[in-house]
Every structure is written in C-alpha cells, then in structure tokens.
Design a binder for these strands. Structure first.
Lengths: 149, 149
DNA sequence: ATGTATGCAAAACATTTGCACCTGG
DNA sequence: CCAGGTGCAAATGTTTTGCATACAT
C-alpha cells in the first residue's frame, strides 16, 4: 500500500514525519500505540521527530479518519489505524494486551436502545476489562489474537 | 440516609471533607461530576476544602465502592455515586448531558462473547456518543432521563 | 516563493505527592 | 494522645502551543 497516496487522499501534504508515523502504525506488531510509543519507535528508526509533532500528526490523522483515538482507563490515549471495520475492545488487566472483537447483537441493540429514547447515535466505545485465559493458567497470555494486536 | 454511617460502613473515618463531598454527590442536580466540579460546589458552600483532598477522597470512595470513576472522552475523569445498579451511558455531544441506560441483551452478549474467547470479564464501560432528540429540534435537551432502563 | 509543517521549549491541564499541621475518636 | 486526614505547594505525566526555522509544491 502507498502511504503517500493515503495522505494525499486525506488532504494532507506528504511529509517525512507523516509518512513515517503512518509507517509505524502500519508495521507495528501491536496495533494500539500511545503517542509516546510511536515517538520511541521513531527514535529506534533513527528519526528525530519531536514528540509534539507526533501528537500533532496523530491528531490530524484522527481528524481525517486515518486513525482512531481511544481513551482507555489510565489517562493516556492510544491510537489505532482505522483500516479495518469497526470493532470493540477487550483489555487484559494482567498482561496489558488489547484484543478486538465485533458482535452484531451488541451493535444492533445499541441502535435499538438509542432509537427508543430518541438519541441520535453517532459513535460509541465499548471496553471490556478482565483477564485473558492464558494469564489465569500459564501466567502468560494465550488468548487467540484477532488481527494484529 | 445517613452519610456518616455510610462512611463508617466503608471503613473510612468520618471527617468534614468526606461528609461534605458525599453530600455534594448525593444532592447535586447532575449525577456525573468531575473533581473540579465537586471542588467548586464545596466553595459555593463556603467550605475551604483543597482540590487535592477532593481528589484523595474521591479516589478513596472509588476504592471502597462508594463512587464510580469514568473516563469519558476529553481527558478528565468524572465521578458518580455508586448507589444504583450497574448501567451504561449516553453522552450528548451538543448539550453535554449524560444519560443512563441499562440493556439486558447487551450485558448478556458481553458475557457470552467473553466466554467464547476465554476472557474472564471483570468490568466494562460502554459509552454511546450522539445527540439527544431535544437538541436536534428545539435546541435544548429534552430527552427523557432513564435511570437504569 | 510561500504557505504549511516541524522542533524545541514553555505552557497548560489533570492528577498525585511530600510534608508540616490539624482533627477525630 | 496519636494515627490518620488535610492544606498547600511542588512534582508528575500527558498533551498543547508559541515561535523561529525548515520544507514541500
């Protein structure tokens, strides 16, 4: 895939920081990254991109729909490439891993409930916190990973 | 109800700041308050209680299950008295109002989905963002407030 | 060229913490 | 009296912003 084209399509000028940040998001083994995570990955790639720029770029990406920003518990935001369909998240409190899932019934009920009370639903976030099976038994996370992350 | 007793039952010494903060949470017309909100309410009551104390007390209350802390979008936490059963939230992006709802089907599906992938669900947060009907029409919020529907 | 993007440092917030003092039981 | 609670100020951690410089078109 051509990241430069993605940027142009989104109406953003193609610059080194933007291209590299997009690259990090696309290639990272973990899908959900904080601004700091992205910043560190860039440093590892010997790129001197300021943390402020990382924040600015991620916020722009969010604005044009390239990434999704999550506010998981604990204050800091995490960003995820918006390249697959909508899904919700499970967060393991033991290993910190983030799993994705999608449930048609839950999605439908949300629309239904909204309609019943006259609420125009635009967006939602569902985070389920718990412990993945692997942590309970072997002490390491073995829950089947869905997609990257 | 007797707030002093609530504190004692929770294993917390009954002090003026704690009693007053509990009082604010119980009597506020809006159920969901940030630490700053609580702090301001206290000032209005001519109580000189430091913001740091408000944070400490709210965190203790959360620890003993007297309040629930939410991380809605936008960084700051909001606190809600934990005096009714579990429910989820709808947030109006126009008027800022917070509505509560409960849907058995959604709750059940969450458990089901968790079980299917071997996830021990401990907690969850579902926030639905949108616009309440009143805002769309009259410009003011008129959605019927449903406490656990 | 020229308007936009970036880097750096400083600012802005939300929240926490250290410490001396005060308070409730 | 004494452990624990509180106030204040300073520290933290995250995200934003001002401004001079660098860059893409």
């Amino acid at each position: 895939m051509n990241t430069a084209a993605d940027l142009k399509k989104a109406g953003l000028k193609s610059t080194v920081p933007r291209l590299k940040i997009l690259e990090v998001l696309e290639s990272a083994p973990v899908r959900h990254l904080s601004a700091e995570d992205v910043y560190k990955k860039l440093l590892e790639m010997d790129l001197e991109i300021g943390l402020a720029t990382v924040y600015r770029v991620l916020t722009q990406f969010e604005g044009v729909g390239l990434v999704i920003r999550h506010s998981f518990e604990g204050g800091r935001s995490v960003f995820e490439l918006d390249d697959e369909g909508h899904h919700d998240h499970m967060l393991c409190l033991e290993c910190g891993e983030v799993f994705e899932f999608f449930d048609k019934v839950i999605e439908e009920r949300q629309k239904q409930v909204s309609k019943e009370v006259g609420f125009v639903l635009e967006d939602h976030s569902l985070y389920m916190y718990g412990v993945c099976e692997g942590m309970k038994t072997s002490g390491k996370c073995s829950m089947k990973k869905k997609k990257r992350g």
